[in-house]
């Protein structure tokens, strides 16, 4: 099966703009809110959103990166341990409104691990989830996004690939067969 483009650069930009406005609608000037990008792939989305929100006049925007490797529920169920990524949270989340940011929501297991992991940095007032792509009908846990860029129907043998201008040279989201990754 060939690569199928779901969102091209123009449509992706519209979606990102909408997500920014939804965040501003809910969080105003972000005085008590923090953005947490889930490593590894939520980081690029989180950084892009911060850039866009800054251009809309939101100046106070704490951003952290959270790695969930040590909190996963599949340790010892894989052939080899996963290599952890950097966690970089320079603030406490105690009493804050936390927004988790990830590019693709699939089984929900990463978000479950993130819910555990964030408590190492304090007890948040509440936690919301923003995902750029939601893969419908594939959740293994009762986890749903508060802010969703786009929903897609895909089967397990497929993969959703999110590309960023900063890293891959273009903004684009596509579905590809798993074998070709």
């Amino acid at each position: 099966m060939r690569k199928k483009i779901i969102l091209d650069e123009e449509r992706m930009h519209i979606v990102l703009e909408r997500l920014c406005f939804q965040l501003v609608e809910q969080h105003g000037d972000f005085t008590n809110s923090v953005l947490i990008g889930l490593q590894p792939r939520g980081a690029a989305l989180a950084e892009r959103l911060v850039k866009m929100l800054r251009s809309k006049g939101v100046s106070h925007l704490p951003l952290g990166l959270l790695d969930i490797t040590f909190f996963r529920d599949d340790f010892r169920r894989r052939d080899a341990p996963l290599q952890p990524n950097q966690t970089k949270i320079d603030f406490l989340v105690e009493g804050k409104r936390v927004i988790f940011i990830d590019d693709v929501l699939y089984t929900g297991r990463s978000v479950r691990a993130a819910l555990d992991a964030i408590h190492s940095f304090g007890r948040p007032a509440d936690i919301e989830l923003l995902t750029l792509i939601e893969r419908r009908f594939s959740r293994k846990l009762p986890i749903y996004p508060n802010y969703c860029g786009h929903s897609v129907d895909s089967i397990d043998s497929e993969r959703v690939l999110v590309e960023w201008k900063e890293v891959h040279g273009k903004d684009q989201i596509s579905i590809i067969p798993h074998e070709s990754t």
Binding site: F70, F71, H119, G122
Partner: peptide, 13 residues
């Protein structure tokens, strides 16, 4: 980084 967090424990093992 983990052992310099306010809560220094992870559930891996």
């Amino acid at each position: 980084e983990v052992i310099n967090r306010p809560i220094k424990k992870v559930p891996s093992l």
